[in-house]
Design a protein around this nucleic acid. Sequence first.
DNA 1: ATCAATTTCTTAACCGCTAAATTTAATGGA
DNA 2: TCCATTAAATTTAGCGGTTAAGAAATTGAT
Lengths: 336, 336
Amino acid sequence: MERINIKKLAEALNLSKSTVSRAFRDNSDIKPDTKEKILAKAKELNYEPNHYASNLREQKSRTIAIIVPELANNYFSQAIHGIERIARQHQYHILIYVTDDDYQKEVDFIRHLHNGRADGIIMSASGEADDHAYLNNLGAKRLPLVFFDRIYEDIEAPRVITNDYDSSFKATEHLIQQGCKRICYLVVNKNLSIGKTRMRGYQDALAKYQIPFNEKLIVDCSNSYEENALIIKNALQDLKPDGVFASVERLAFATYYACFDLNLRIPDDLKVIGFSSLEIAPLLNPSLTTMTQPATEIGAQAAQLLFNILEGQESVETIQEVVLKSKLYGRKSTAK
Amino acid sequence: MERINIKKLAEALNLSKSTVSRAFRDNSDIKPDTKEKILAKAKELNYEPNHYASNLREQKSRTIAIIVPELANNYFSQAIHGIERIARQHQYHILIYVTDDDYQKEVDFIRHLHNGRADGIIMSASGEADDHAYLNNLGAKRLPLVFFDRIYEDIEAPRVITNDYDSSFKATEHLIQQGCKRICYLVVNKNLSIGKTRMRGYQDALAKYQIPFNEKLIVDCSNSYEENALIIKNALQDLKPDGVFASVERLAFATYYACFDLNLRIPDDLKVIGFSSLEIAPLLNPSLTTMTQPATEIGAQAAQLLFNILEGQESVETIQEVVLKSKLYGRKSTAK
DNA sequence: ATCAATTTCTTAACCGCTAAATTTAATGGA
DNA sequence: TCCATTAAATTTAGCGGTTAAGAAATTGAT
C-alpha cells in the first residue's frame, strides 16, 4: 500500500492540495462543508499531515529537547515527567538526550540540535562551572534554552533551581542541632556550580556554630557505584565523622551501604541527611532524613519558562530565575 | 544574523548545492579536497544540514518513539536508559510519550506518529489484553513496533519480556517455603496480559503445594497512591494474610506503608516479595525480597530488535520473542 | 595532439506541505 | 439583469535538502 499524502487525498476528493491543507488548519478561506468532507475522508484513508514537510515549511518543529546527565535517576525522571506534562498541554513533543555526565556529548547534542530538530532546549548541565563559549558562539542562532538544577552561571538563560544555599545551610544546621560535630560533605563534582553553592551553605552553617571548617571532610566522589562505595568507606574509617551530608541522593545510599559494611549504626554512630526526591525515604532502614527537592515541579516550571519564550509571551531578554524551595523532612537517620 | 543553509554555504564556496550536499554524505562523486574545504567552511559558519529537509527528502527520520505508561518509575526509566544507549549507538534520536495508563492517549500517540515523525516505536502497552484493532487497521503502513514488558497478545510484533510465569511461580513458591499459607496477590490491573500471566504463576505454585486458591486474596489495586494505601490496609485487616506477593514494585512499597500504619511486623507477621528493579531494595526496612527484572537490559534488547528491522537485517515477518530472566533476591522481608 | 574513460561538478526535479497571489463561484443590492 | 462584494477554490512558488541525469574537467593511453 502506498503512503497517503496530501496530493492523493486531494485527488480522491477532487480538490486542490491547498484546500485540503486548509482543512487541517485554522483558516477561514474554506467552506465548513468542504472542511468536514475533507476531514472525514482523511480519517477514512488514515491521513495525517506529514510533520517533516509542514515543519520544514513553517520553520518550527513543535518539539523540545531535554538534555540530562543521567536518566535512571529519581530526580531526573521526575523532572522529565514534569516537563512532559506541560509539553503535552502545549502539544509539543519531547526528545531526550542523556550525556552520562560527559560534557563533550552535551556540546555535540546542542550543536546538533541547532539544525531544526527542536525549537527549544531544557537542560541540566553536565559541564563544569566556568567556560561555555560554545553556547554563546551560536550567537543569534541559539535556540531558546532553559536550565534546571545544574546551571551555567556564565550563560544568560532562564533557570529553575532550588534554594540550594539555604537548603544546604539548613541541612547542615539540622545535623549540628542533632549533635553532630564532624560533618562530612559528600559531593560528586566540586566544580559543578550546584556542588559549589551547596558547599557554601554547608560551610556557612558550620561557621555559624563555630565549627572549624576542615577541608578533609569534603569528600569528592565519582559517578561509579563501585568507586563511591570505596571512597565513602575509606572516608568513614579515616575521618570518623559523626554526620554525613550527601549533596545528591545516590551518595546517601552509598553511605548506607558503607555503614552496613563497616557495622556503623545510623543514627547512633553516624547521622545522615541527603538531598533527594525519593518517595520511599520513609521506608529505608533507618528512614532517611531528606532535603526534598520538588523535582516534578522544577521540570514543569522549566517547561513553562520555555513556552513563555516559544510562544512569545516573554521577551527573550528577560532572564528569569525561578527558585523552588526544597523542604527538610526529619527522619530517623538524624535522630538524636 | 540570518540562518545559514546549504545554498548560502554553497555560494560562500562558489560551489553548487549538490556538491555541498555530497560533502555531508558518503558519496564518491566528490574530490576529497573539496570535501575538506566544504566541511571546514561549514564548521566555521556553524552549518548543519537541516534534518527536516533531509528527512523529508529521504523519507526517514532517524528517530524512534518510546511510549510508556509512566515515567517517574524505576522500571521504565531504567528501560528507557537501555533504549537510549542503543539508539545513540545507531545515531538515532528518541521521542518520549507518556500515557499515564490511559489507553486512548496511546491510540492517539500511535496514530499521530504515523506521519513521518518516527521510523519505529518501542512501547510498553497501556491498554488491556484484548482488542487492538486500531493497530492492525494501520495496515501495511504500520510503523515497525516492538513491545517490552506489557504486550498485546493479539498484535504481531517482536517483544521483549521477562519470564513472568516462572518468576511468579518461584516468587510464590519462595513465600510458601518461608512458611506462608495465606498469600495475597496484589495486582494493578487484572486484565493486563502481564497481570494475568503473573497470576497464573501464583495460582500454579499454590496448587503445587496443595494450597487452595482463594479468589478473595487477589487484590486489585489502582494507580493512585492514596487509593492503594486504603485498599491494601483493608486487605491486610480483612484477609489477614501471612504473605504478600506484589506484582509491581509500587504495591510492595504500599504494603510497607500499610504495615507501618497497622503495626504489622515484616517478616514476622507478614512476609513480602515484589517484582522490582529497585537498586536500593537492600536498604529498606526490612530489606525487600525482590524478583528483580533486568530493566535496562530489557530496554536495550527491545531497541536492538527494532534496529534489526529498521536496518533491514531482519525480515519484518519474523516475530521474535526475547525472554530475559528475572532473578530472585531473598532478603529479610521474607525471612523465617 | 587526440579521444575515450573517468572523475568531479552542476542542473533540475522532487520530497509533502503551506500561503500569498490569483482565479472562479456565489451573493445581494439597485 | 448587471455589477460590485465577498466567499471559496486553485495556481504557484517556495521551505532546505538529495539525487538522477547530464555537462565540464581531468586523466592517460596511443
